[in-house]
Amino acid sequence: MKPTLLELKDQFTHLTLAPELGGSIVNWTVRNTGQPLLRHSDAQALNTGLPNKLGCFPLVPWSNRISDGGFDRPDGWLALEPNSLTDPYPIHGSAWQQPWQVMSQTHDEVLLQLDSTTPFAYRARQRFHLSAGKLSIELHVTHLAERAAWHGLGLHPYLPRTAGTQLQAKAGQVWLCDASKLPTRLSSPPADWDFQQLESLPDTLVDNSFSEWDGHCLIRQPDLGYELECRASGSDYYLLYCPVGLAFFCIEPVSHPVNAHHLPGRPGLVLLEHGQSTKLTFSLQYRAYPNN
């Protein structure tokens, strides 16, 4: 069965959502040209029913991978199983694998909600607002279980990549990883991962968490005729994923680094009691940019 799609439009852009597919964004495009601002999702991608084949999906109640089969809560161990055929670890939380409900919709805003019992009870909300070429996303979670648990949030946008794509996203340090893609130590970013200024993306694989981020990034697409100026709050980290030889990359605003549940001090995670909440926001402002 084809998922029900929701649409928002402003004078510059067009947003399509698939609430049933993990509360995902399917496409975000420029209205007068059809230019994708997120990785384009065609009918085949939509028919897979997989949010990670679409434009963007939410990360609740954690981002990326958790090792060791679970994590400690104040009153005991919470066991987790792998939840993806492509990864040996539980990854990206549970919200992306469940259908969300439409709570309200106006001409410029949609509110989605998920009431989940996996891996514990929580309520997640996403608010999408579109105005003057600016897409604003608010991701909010409330802990509903009686036993406290650690929470983290993030968003996983897929962005077009060409030879000319440039990124600016200031970060003080990066977590280096082992062969299993789990972090091992903090380091200053190597030269080709230093995005203090606008730089081209590296030709080699990047799949790492960057810390001491100010929440601002600029994505310039001179080959495609636009740029995105992005701002995040509740997010001191970003994950950068640059696969080799593919026409997309990901810069993910997240509240914590990979495997934070097992890092000293659990950086970026929030311990929520019943009824307590935390949130993350992310905005992407579209601007036309002269083609080369």
Rank of each mutant, 00 (worst) to 15 (best):
Asn64Glu: 04
Leu15Arg: 01
Gln35Thr: 11
Leu85Thr: 11
Glu81Met: 14
Pro88Ile: 05
Gly70Cys: 11
Asp87Ala: 09
Pro36Ser: 04
Arg73Pro: 09
Asn32Ile: 05
Thr33Glu: 08
Arg73Thr: 15
Leu17Glu: 00
Glu81Cys: 07
Leu15Asp: 02
Pro88Cys: 07
Ser84Gly: 15
Pro36Glu: 02
Gly23Ser: 11
Ser63Pro: 09
Gly70Arg: 02
Gly49Glu: 10
Leu38Glu: 01
Tyr89Val: 05
Asp68Tyr: 15
Pro90Met: 14
Ala45Gly: 07
Leu85Ala: 11
Gly34Cys: 14
Trp77Leu: 14
Leu21Gly: 01
Pro90Phe: 01
Asn52Cys: 14
Asp75Asn: 11
Phe57Gln: 06
Glu20Cys: 12
Glu81Ile: 08
Asp42Thr: 02
Pro36Arg: 04
Leu46Trp: 03
Gly70Trp: 05
Leu78Thr: 02
Ser63Leu: 08
Ser24Gly: 07
Asn83Leu: 02
Asn32His: 13
Leu17Asn: 04
Ala43Asp: 08
Val26Phe: 04
Asn47His: 15
Tyr89Ala: 07
Arg39Asn: 13
Asp72Gly: 15
Leu15Val: 04
Asn83Ala: 07
Ala43Pro: 10
Gly55Val: 08
Leu46Met: 06
Leu50Lys: 01
Gly76Cys: 10
Gly76Tyr: 11
Ser24Pro: 12
Asp72Phe: 10
Leu59His: 07
